[in-house]
Design a protein around this nucleic acid. Structure first.
Lengths: 237, 237
DNA sequence: TAGATTGTTAATCGATTAACAATC
DNA sequence: TAGATTGTTAATCGATTAACAATC
């Protein structure tokens, strides 16, 4: 068994940072820049340059002193590590607002993911096509998952239906579930569940805002950046 | 200046775990259980019980030996720490599929967030109401943000428009931006940006699936759980 | 009581940060 | 060349894990 980049031990913070680097590098490449330094990447996201350098090292990227990293090659290396170069097929249960938004999300294709079927209990939706994806009755889900060898199921149904849908997906043979319903799932071991809680990001943002406001007050409003900060306490005219 | 739960130093992993605990505790409470142990919570998400205990300790929760934690009180404590008990108002730019899904997301209200206005460049959308939220022209955004003292803006516009929209939000006075556009933003320091990359969760799920499959192969298919695992390599009949 | 579970203190581990030599 | 940036090695820090006493 050979070891690929994807096999290496991974850390969640690393995986969360890499896409941010990717976006920045992509932007530079679009501007015609051929190479980019870890310092530059770090500046963009208020991160220590050492972290960026370590991260890039950990995915096996090699740069040139003084010059930096070759942008195009770096994008390729991040892609490889993230597994964006291989296609994975998904199914989705629940075709409401959220399901529809997910089916219409262009970012999947760019990153090697494709939703190949949707499922809904609503007979009016069954047989229709949303963003190019055909919608089937939930009753057919397990069979279709099995026939198509799908490994990952997306749950975008209401909380009350989530557990049942998850079990049906597992019965069909998925080994991973991406759960957007804000509820815990009780599933056999061996099944990976990624609980998506959109609010969490918002809380992290809030706490960051809170901390930088505190830091601002502590330093008496002095900001180490050359850019003009926005006044924090505006008063109504 | 008094120190509240929200002021305490926070770790991102902690904040990501707490909502998962919340969902489990909520489920138990619905089943009529009055108290819940850290062990039980841990079992549900395949986590070390010690982590759960430490996390609960770090938010100031106190339990009773042998009995566990009082479920209702614990929910309240998590709410407090996460800041879900205070209302925060948001605006959103971009009312496409994603924006619509966000505006329709019921979870915001439950957790102290409220989207109070939407903005779009499409004149057909301006003046309409989506999920109870009124849509305005982007040109009015900065002014409305200022008048309403909004602190957080959500960006749900295409990549090409994201940077410009972000600057307009900052001009209006937001100090935090929740960016769903898959692109880096170049903003003055003092502005917190939470980059939302939905694909990242999917990659984490994939890597977890990969690892548990590897673990399964290494142990010769032996699973320490009493539940029946799903066979991994199914063949077409 | 006995035993499960909390609370607490110490040990380990891994990620982050620092320091500095190597090099284009 | 001089200086910026990488690559590498060591130090620090914080999160996780372990161990065990306290207690209901």
């Amino acid at each position: 068994m050979t070891t690929t980049a994807q096999d290496r031990q991974f850390s969640v913070p690393l995986i969360r940072r890499l896409p941010e680097y990717y976006a920045i590098i992509e932007m530079f490449l679009k501007q015609g820049k051929v190479s980019i330094s870890s310092t530059t990447i770090a500046e963009y996201i208020n991160l220590d340059p050492i972290i960026v350098r370590k991260d890039l090292e950990s995915i096996g990227a090699v740069g040139k002193p003084k010059v930096g990293f070759q942008a195009a090659k770096l994008l390729e290396e991040i892609s490889m590590f993230m597994g964006w170069n291989t296609l994975d097929e998904l199914v989705i249960a629940g075709c409401g607002d959220l399901g529809t938004a997910l089916m219409g999300y262009m970012g999947f294709a760019k990153r090697g993911f494709k939703i190949i079927a949707g499922f809904d209990v609503d007979p009016l939706k069954q047989g229709t096509v949303i963003h190019g994806i055909q919608i089937f009755p939930v009753a057919e889900m397990a069979n279709l998952i099995r026939r198509l060898h799908v490994q990952i199921g997306i749950i975008a149904v209401p909380v009350a239906a989530a557990q049942d849908i998850a079990l049906q997906m597992v019965a069909g043979g998925v080994t991973g579930i991406w759960n957007f319903a804000p509820t815990a799932l009780n599933l056999p071991s061996g099944i990976s569940v990624q609980q998506e809680d959109i609010i969490t990001s918002l809380v992290i943002l809030q706490k960051n805002m809170h901390q930088s406001r505190k830091r601002l007050l502590e330093t008496g409003g002095a900001i180490e950046s050359d850019q003009q900060p926005i006044p924090l306490n505006r008063s109504e005219p």
